[in-house]
Each structure stands twice: as C-alpha cells, then as structure tokens.
Design a protein around this nucleic acid. Sequence first.
DNA 1: TTTTTATATAGCTGGATGGCTATGGGTTCG
DNA 2: CGAACCCATAGCCATCCAGCTATATAAAAA
Lengths: 107, 107
Amino acid sequence: MTEPHDILFRTLADPTRRALFERLCREGEKTVGALTAKAGVSQPVVSKHLSLLKQAGLVRDRHEGRQTHYSAQLDALAPLVDWTGRMTRFWEARFDDLENLLRRMDQ
Amino acid sequence: MTEPHDILFRTLADPTRRALFERLCREGEKTVGALTAKAGVSQPVVSKHLSLLKQAGLVRDRHEGRQTHYSAQLDALAPLVDWTGRMTRFWEARFDDLENLLRRMDQ
DNA sequence: TTTTTATATAGCTGGATGGCTATGGGTTCG
DNA sequence: CGAACCCATAGCCATCCAGCTATATAAAAA
C-alpha cells in the first residue's frame, strides 16, 4: 500500500524540511553548517531533516574531510509529477465522458 | 511564510485523506456514505478528512437532502504542479551554468 | 596529543493529529 | 408525530514527530 509518492508527500509536508530542499534546488550543493546558518533551527534538527530527505531519495550527501555536502536529487520528484498527472488525467477522462454524453443528448 | 502549496503538501501527506481525494478524482462525485464504505475508517473520520480537504480547496461539497456529495476540485493541484516545475527549473538553470562553464573551459 | 571544529546520534518533551465513541442537527419515511 | 437515516461535531486518547540539549564521532589544527 506504500506507493512511491507516499514518502515524498510525507517528507515534503514539513515546512522546515521543504525549505532545506528548496535551498538545495535553488543554490546547489551546501554543507550542513551553511544550511544551519539560515535555517532558523539548531544544527541537530537540520541534520535530522537532511537524513529524512536522504531516506526519501530527495538529496545526496558527499563527505569531504569533516564536513558533509548535500545536494538535491531532482529526479526524485518524478513520482510526485506522475501522481498529479494521473489525477489530472482521471479528471479529464471523466470530463470527456461528460462531453460525449452531452453530444449524444444533442442529437 | 505560508505559501499556497504548503497546505496542499500538509493535506495530502496523510494516506487516508489522499486516498479519499484519489477516489474522488477517479470515480467522480460521491456521498460521505459511499466513501465511508470503502475507506477502512469510521464515518466521523471520513467527514473530518473531507472537511480538511475542503479547507485546502481540494474538494467541493453539494448538499442534497440529508446527504452530502463531495467532488474533486482538480485545479487546486496547480500550486503543486507550479512548485515542482520551479524546483526543476532551478535545477536546469544550474545545469546550464555548468554547461557554460565547461564550454568556456574547453576553449 | 590536546583542542577546536563539523556533523551525527541519543534522549527528552510538548504539541499536533488521526483514530475512536457518543451525540447533535437536520431530513426522510412510516 | 416518532423512528430511522445521513452527516457533522465534540470529546477523548494514543501515537507521532519536530524541536531542544547533551554527547559521541571524527577530522583538522595547534
């Protein structure tokens, strides 16, 4: 019952965590320290969020000496795009049916 | 700080709630009773979830006698689509910069 | 080696929330 | 009218989780 988009919705639902992901998308690779500086929460909290983002496949980490660099893994958003696309197509399919019905009623 | 996509992520993060929205997208308008029958949770829980979906603009309700019909409001997903699009464009912009850099280095 | 720096982990706590049952409000049926 | 029905609300409880501080781990610097 656990679809691929499920973990994405859950992970991106938290504003702090989503803001971290957005910064990585906008500004590219960043260290934990750099992210913490403007995150508005403590460093352990940032680390925890990055860990969850990594679990969801939304970020990668790269170790360099004593610092860890994180970067967005954008293709991880694909299941989200697919899901919204599917929902839209369901809607359109039912709309087409309605159109057909109306067309038949017209004759 | 509360962006339009924020409430969508939060609302769709819950699997039960998202399943209700999916059913409304797939199968069109449904009464609370019909939704409850296959939701796996009690009727009050379904009502509560529908209320939150409505607050998020994801569904509409239509009262008819003693029953309430709910239907998906699909254009409400637009901020979600916009957000994923923006993230993707940030990524591509940085990728283009990298390409330019490599091109300059090549010369 | 000792100290400082960078990040991760452990443990705690308050607040948010999803589930339940019980009940209220309103509608249709007998 | 009263009974049955549909849905929403109220109130409660357990669980989850985002935040904190303290500490462990590990690397660079002194």
